[in-house]
């Protein structure tokens, strides 16, 4: 099969970018989307041109590096997969496919399809952890965790930090990402001690990093390659309200 690509090229964050067109020919439908880009890049290199910069690593949908807006959708047309798990069999011969970076105010473009997502790291650094230094843990079975809580916590913890939720959101909100991390830890008995502190720090940092507000369109959920649900956003809102009341009104922060 053959497809035509319209790819966003931008030399750096300081320069403006634009679309360039490329032909990808004689593709095997079992190729991954990134393998198709590899082939285009091989041709560009052979022609002495700079290859298209894009992020990727594990190529099995777990590291969260890949971050392509494919045909206007984060990670492309298939449901619940990352860009690297998108295969050419999802497209038709002769398709014109637009490829852009994950755009958002909080994710500045570095080059071509590569954006800076370090704002996510700063949210985790502010509160996305349980404060337990190495060596101070009790025996793992001394704190029973109901299977239901562990399973729900795992659903939230499955987030790969790719940023599709932010890219899909008209407000550039990071609520799905932030709420997934808060829920992962708040749902476990181990996470209770600093729950209020965690929630307040995460939300405050999210705002400070330039992410927008949530207006409940749920675009994030449909874009998420890991099926993280907006239920966690509702939970974050509840946890935040309670933490605010306890901390700011009653002064009883953990």
């Amino acid at each position: 099969m053959n497809v035509k690509l319209k790819v966003w090229r931008q030399a750096s964050g300081q320069q403006s970018g634009g679309f360039e067109e490329y032909e990808a020919k004689e593709l095997n439908p079992n190729m991954s989307f990134l393998e198709m880009l590899d082939e285009v890049n091989e041709e560009l290199i052979q022609a002495g041109k700079e290859p298209i910069a894009f992020e990727h690593d594990c190529r099995e949908g777990i590291c969260g590096s890949c971050s392509l807006m494919i045909g206007g959708e984060p990670h492309g047309p298939e449901y619940r997969v990352a860009s690297c798990q998108t295969y050419m069999r999802s497209f038709k011969d002769g398709d014109v496919i637009t490829i852009e970076p994950f755009r958002s105010k909080a994710f500045p473009v570095l080059k071509d399809l590569v954006v800076d997502r370090s704002a996510f790291d700063r949210i985790i650094q502010a509160g996305g952890f349980i404060s337990v230094s190495t060596g101070s843990a009790p025996d793992a079975n001394s704190i029973p965790v109901p299977k239901v809580s562990a399973d729900l916590s795992m659903d939230a913890a499955a987030c790969i930090g790719c940023g599709a939720c932010v890219a899909s959101c008209k407000n550039g909100a990071a609520m799905l990402f932030a709420s997934a991390k808060a829920a992962h830890l708040n749902l476990l008995p181990q996470g209770q001690a600093e729950k209020d502190r965690r929630v307040l720090a995460i939300v405050e940092t999210m705002d400070a990093q330039g992410f927008g507000s949530c207006s409940n369109t749920y675009a994030c959920e449909s874009a998420c390659p890991k099926g993280i649900t907006v239920d966690f956003i509702a939970k974050l809102n509840r946890d935040y309200a309670l933490a605010s009341v306890r901390t700011k009104l009653l002064g009883a922060a953990a």
């Binding site: 952890f129 349980i130 793992a140 079975n141 029973p144 109901p146 299977k147 916590s153 795992m154």
Partner: peptide, 18 residues
């Protein structure tokens, strides 16, 4: 022990043990 304390959501039995 360390990972469970950090909140790694290991698989559990219904009784809450690992």
């Amino acid at each position: 022990d360390q990972c469970a304390a950090q909140g790694v959501p290991f698989a559990r039995e219904y009784g809450g043990t690992l």
